[in-house]
Simulated assay, not measured.
Amino acid sequence: MVSRGESVLAAQPYEALTGDDIAAILYTSGTTGRAKGVLLTHRSWNATLESLIAVDLLHEDDVTLLWLPLAHAFGKALSLMAVRAGYLTYIDGNLDRIASNLDEVKPTFMCSVPRILEKIHARVKTGAEASPVKRRLLDWAASVAMTTQELETTGERVPRKLGVQTKVADALVLKKIRGAFGGRLRFLSSGSGALDPAIAKWFGGAGITVLEGCGLTEAGSTTSLNRIGEVEYGTVGKPLPGTEVAFDTDGEILVRSASVMKEYHGNPEARPRRSPTTVGCAPVTSACSPIGATSASPIARRTCSRRRTASTSHRASSRRASWPCARTRHSSSSSVRAAGSSSDSSRSTRSR
């Protein structure tokens, strides 16, 4: 393998690579049709990484446990981000070892999918069911913690009695929940599906901030993300720096960013068409919750089973005029609300 790599490098030195050369071919899930090979360039990945660096979320002293598949855009972006940001990554794709790995690694952040967080939540609840006292104690602690969290989020004063109750709840229950994640967790990031806001609030009350985000393979993973201190449950946050999100008048989701793919591999009929002012277009898939955004507020999400057209958006028409991206049809159904955030970017993706 080493010898083969050396011969490849001799024939094509890495110094000769450009931003437009292909860095990876990642395949979509195929849940809404034939799986497509997404051609992501070095420029695409670099744009994704720099946008995440710009939100100042990850640092050299961070530690994470990566169990997401590296063939998926989410996991691939995290593995590359470790090189860019310089943090330490432990990799183990065996889900049966997550609990023991968390205790050993003690991560400062971890990225997950809703299913895992739902299972952890259910396991804690089930464990407390064995004893009526434990069940009541857990319910009380969660209620107290979420009430305190809501007051703090809105900037309201926490009553003295509630503050004392929160300290007691933390000592008896909440500290143990954080301990199950190693005790150092700054935040969890959830993507690739919609997380029940009640579960996100439950984790938040326990002192584990959940940053829900949204993305797609065709845009090099993440396109929007909640920020620490600005979390709004039930949303996937604001578009990342360098990314625009808006809607066409018929409800198509529009994402424009330098991170957008070059084209689909060996699939001419699905290859995005070009226009003089647009580098490329690609369909947004249903890999995340359908989205919509305003420049001032986080992107609202709805379940994939619903659809709302962009008639609810007062900016859709004006946005469409400035985005001459050819229509690309996709079979995913999307519910959307409002129009996009602006930035300087060069590519567009859209879906229906």
Rank of each mutant, 00 (worst) to 15 (best):
A99Y: 11
V105H: 09
S100D: 15
I120V: 12
E118T: 14
R136Q: 09
A130R: 15
L117I: 07
T108F: 04
V105M: 10
I98G: 03
D96A: 11
N101V: 05
T126N: 11
D139H: 04
E129K: 11
A122E: 10
L137I: 10
L138C: 02
D103S: 11
L137A: 14
E118Q: 13
K119G: 02
T108K: 11
K125Q: 14
S131L: 07
D96M: 09
R115W: 01
R123E: 10
M110C: 10
H121C: 04
T126G: 15
H121I: 00
L117M: 09
L117D: 08
P107V: 00
F109W: 10
E118N: 09
S112C: 06
E129S: 14
V113E: 03
K106V: 00
E118I: 15
S112E: 06
F109A: 12
D103V: 09
I98H: 06
P114W: 08
E129P: 00
V124N: 00
R115G: 05
T108G: 11
P107N: 01
R136K: 12
R97E: 13
V105A: 04
M110K: 02
E129D: 11
L102V: 05
V133L: 10
G127N: 08
L137M: 12
R136F: 01
A130Y: 15
V105S: 04
L137F: 03
A99H: 14
P114A: 08
E118Y: 07
L102F: 12
M110A: 11
A99I: 04
R115M: 12
P114H: 08
I120E: 01
E129F: 15
L102A: 05
F109Q: 08
E104M: 09
I98D: 05
E104S: 10
L102T: 03
D103T: 11
T108L: 02
E129G: 00
K134M: 14
N101D: 13
S112F: 02
T126H: 09
D96L: 10
R123F: 05
R115E: 08
F109I: 03
H121G: 01
S131Q: 04
L137R: 13
S131C: 13
R115L: 13
K119S: 14
D139I: 01
L138F: 12
E129M: 15
K106D: 00
I98E: 06
D96E: 14
V124C: 01
K106A: 13
L117E: 12
L137W: 06
A130F: 15
E118L: 13
I98V: 12
S112N: 05
C111K: 01
V133N: 00
